[in-house]
Computed example of a mutant assay.
Amino acid sequence: MADSVQKAVFFDVDDTLYDHLSPLRSALQEAVGLADDMPYEDIYYRFRYYSDLLSEEKNLSAVPEKEALADMRRRRFMLALAEFGIFLNEKEAEAAQTAYVNRQFQIQPFHGAMELMETLTHSGIKVGLITNGPAKHQQKKLKALQVHRYIPEDMIFVSGGVGYAKPDVRLFEHVNAITKTSPEHSYYIGDSWRNDVVGAIKAGWTVLWYNHRNAEAESDHRPHFIVHNYEEIKDSLLSIAGLQKV
Rank of each mutant, 00 (worst) to 15 (best):
D12G: 01
Y164Q: 06
G85I: 14
R194I: 06
E216D: 11
E83Y: 07
L88V: 01
F47L: 11
Y210Q: 07
V158A: 06
R149N: 15
A95L: 10
W193T: 02
K91R: 15
A165M: 08
K245A: 10
V5Y: 14
L79N: 08
G242C: 06
L53N: 13
S22G: 01
L21N: 00
I151M: 09
F87W: 15
K58D: 11
S55Y: 00
L24P: 05
E118M: 01
I130C: 03
L238T: 04
N89H: 04
S182C: 13
I125S: 08
A203N: 08
L53F: 14
N229C: 02
R213K: 05
I86S: 07
G199K: 05
S186Q: 14
L88Q: 00
T16H: 04
E65Q: 15
D196E: 13
Q29D: 14
M78E: 06
A70I: 14
K7D: 05
H111W: 06
G124Y: 04
L120S: 04
A8E: 08
V169I: 11
G242P: 07
D3E: 04
L171V: 12
E30F: 06
K245V: 12
I233E: 06
V158N: 09
A68Q: 10
S26C: 08
D19G: 02
K202Q: 09
A93P: 03
N132P: 10
M1E: 01
A113W: 00
K143I: 14
L34R: 02
D42C: 02
N132H: 11
A35L: 15
F110V: 01
G160V: 09
L24C: 03
N89P: 04
A203I: 08
G204L: 01
N89I: 03
K245S: 12
A80N: 09
G128N: 13
S159D: 03
L208C: 11
Y188I: 13
A217R: 01
A70K: 11
A80W: 03
S219C: 04
D52F: 05
S182Y: 13
A2T: 14
V227P: 00
I130G: 05
S51I: 04
P64R: 08
E41D: 09
H224K: 14
S22R: 03
K141P: 11
K91H: 14
D52K: 08
T121P: 07
E115Q: 06
A144T: 02
D168L: 09
V207P: 00
I189P: 02
Q29P: 03
I226T: 05
S55E: 10
V101N: 09
E94W: 12
A8Y: 14
S239E: 10
Y40C: 07
A241K: 00
E56T: 13
S219D: 12
Y230F: 05
G112P: 03
N102P: 04
I107N: 01
D37G: 10
V63F: 12
W193V: 09
K180F: 13
H228I: 12
Y150S: 07
D37R: 07
R25M: 00
Y50T: 08
D42T: 06
P39K: 03
D19R: 05
S192V: 09
S186E: 15
L24F: 12
R103C: 13
M38L: 11
A68G: 01
R149P: 06
